[in-house]
Simulated scan of single mutants.
Amino acid sequence: MSGVVLRTMTGTDLPAVLRLEQGLFPEDAWSEEMLREELAEQPRTRHYVVAEAPGGDLVGYAGLAAAGGQADVQTIGVRADQRGGGIGAALLTELLDEAARRNSEAVFLEVRADNDGARRLYKRFGFDEVGVRKRYYQPSDVDAIVMCRKLRTRPPMGFTKESK
């Protein structure tokens, strides 16, 4: 990661994050309003971070929603010229750590079926493919692969059989 640091995303980061978002996801980029709404829920149910290079350039960002024992990776993006250097892994690690701090039992995400690099990263981090959302990404009609990683198991609920 060569000097890149992760820090909490703030409203002042939005112009740079939006430029990254539009460059990385031109067909289905989030709007400024969507990102502002996400940040408005931070830290209550959201956790957003940016990856900042020496000199202040933002080279990545990521967000998590967590409530009721479940967490969802909302987004992860790394500038194309910075891929392969561990930034995506560091961002994902931060999101998983935050999900654990919030006592989430599992973390879910959707990833484009045609995004092989991201799918490999998620599998490396223990995510399993658990479903498909047909034609989820619009306007390109690309399926989303739903993935899940269990963080902990629930304790047994209800009555248990006593041993004699």
Rank of each mutant, 00 (worst) to 15 (best):
P26T: 11
D28K: 10
A29P: 04
S31N: 10
E33L: 14
M34V: 14
E38Q: 12
E38N: 11
E41L: 15
E41H: 14
T45E: 12
H47M: 04
Y48N: 04
V50W: 06
A51Y: 02
A51Q: 09
E52C: 11
A53F: 10
G55Q: 02
G55L: 11
G56R: 07
D57E: 15
L58F: 05
A62C: 07
G63E: 04
G63A: 09
G63I: 01
L64I: 03
A66S: 15
A66F: 03
A67C: 12
G69C: 08
A71P: 03
V73Y: 00
Q74L: 15
Q74H: 09
Q74A: 12
G77L: 01
G77P: 02
V78Q: 00
R79Y: 00
A80Q: 14
D81Q: 07
Q82A: 05
G85W: 04
G88S: 07
G88K: 10
G88M: 08
G88R: 01
G88T: 04
A89N: 10
A90E: 13
L92E: 06
E94P: 01
E94K: 12
E94G: 05
L95P: 00
L95N: 00
L96H: 03
L96N: 05
E98L: 01
A99H: 06
A99E: 04
A99Q: 01
A99W: 06
A100S: 09
R101I: 08
R102A: 10
N103D: 15
E105H: 15
A106Q: 12
A106M: 12
F108N: 02
F108A: 01
L109N: 01
V111N: 03
R112F: 11
